[in-house]
Structures are given as C-alpha cells and as structure tokens.
Nucleic acid binder design. Structure first.
Lengths: 80, 80
DNA sequence: ATGTGACTTATAGTCCGTA
DNA sequence: TTACGGACTATAAGTCACA
C-alpha cells in the first residue's frame, strides 16, 4: 500500500506565510527593493523586512497600503 | 452618447469595508450571532462588533481566526 | 442581540545602529 | 541590499458599562 502522493499536497501556510510569500514574489516581479516598496507604501524599511520574514502581525490598513504600492487588490496578497 | 452604465460599476470599497461586508454575509449565512462568532474565533463580542462596523484596524492574525471560525480562507474575507 | 466610547495593556511600527 | 537588535512611540487588542 503505497502512501506516497502522486503530487505533493500543498502544505497549508499560515496567513502570515501566505502574505510573506506573495509579497516577495510581487516585489521581485516589480524589481523593487524592500526599501523602495516601503517608501511607496509609506512604511518603514525594517517593518517590511519583518513582515517578509513573518516576524510581525501586520494590520489591515497596512496590508492595504502594501497592496496599493504593488498595484494589486488586498486579497491578492493572501491568496494561496 | 449615453453615459449611463448598463449595470452599476461596483463602488470601490476599502479593505476594512470589504472585510466588514464579507464578515456580515458569511456570519449571517451560518446563522451566527456576533457573540457566537466571537466565541468560535476566541475573540470578544464587542471586538467583532467594532470590526463589522469598520471601527477597528484588525490585524492579520485575527483575520485568520475569524476566517477559520467561518470555515473559509483568510483571503476570502477580503474578496470584493 | 448589537453599537459605541472609554479605558489599560500588548504589540505594531519607527528609527537608530551593526553585520 | 538585507537581517537582526535595542529602545523608543503609536496604535491594536481586549474588556467594560450602558444605550
């Protein structure tokens, strides 16, 4: 009885993990540094770094600011 | 030159507004009171009430708790 | 069953550094 | 350019009394 999955089931990420991953991908895609993104969003450089490392529990208003700085809707930052 | 839209363009809601609206719909659909939802999510009744009234800037961890109490993914609470 | 203002405590978010 | 700390200050969390 093989229990090996044919393809890996995606590991369930926490909301923080999801946000961090999406943030990184979108930021890189736009060739922005953490600093540049932080500036666009009106946030501090070190805060963006913390969020990307899942070290901080960001608030909704700031999720919205990051989304807007990246040109996406807020919910897209939480999509798996 | 008619400028009347065939169907109304949806007014753009803030992230708080989106969350509040989705929260209300999902909560009602499950026939939960604010109190019951708060209990499921491990939050205080009045806190949920404030969020539904857009009076609070909720954090990601608590968005996740509410989503889980409602049986949906976090991003679904922010979908337009 | 819900809305709301006020209040304290916890932590989000800033700013200064070092590597 | 990013990671990570320490020491702040601003604001979210959490609770209550009362409409």
């Amino acid at each position: 009885m093989s229990s090996a999955p044919v393809s890996e089931p995606k590991k369930k990420l926490s909301a923080r993990g999801l946000l961090a991953a999406n943030l990184l991908v979108l930021r890189r895609r736009r060739e922005l540094s953490q600093e540049a993104l932080a500036f666009e969003a009106g946030l501090h450089r070190t805060f963006v770094a913390h969020v990307e490392r899942q070290a901080r529990n960001i608030s909704l208003d700031n999720i919205e600011r990051l989304a807007s700085a990246l040109g996406v809707e807020p919910f897209e930052l939480l999509k798996p």
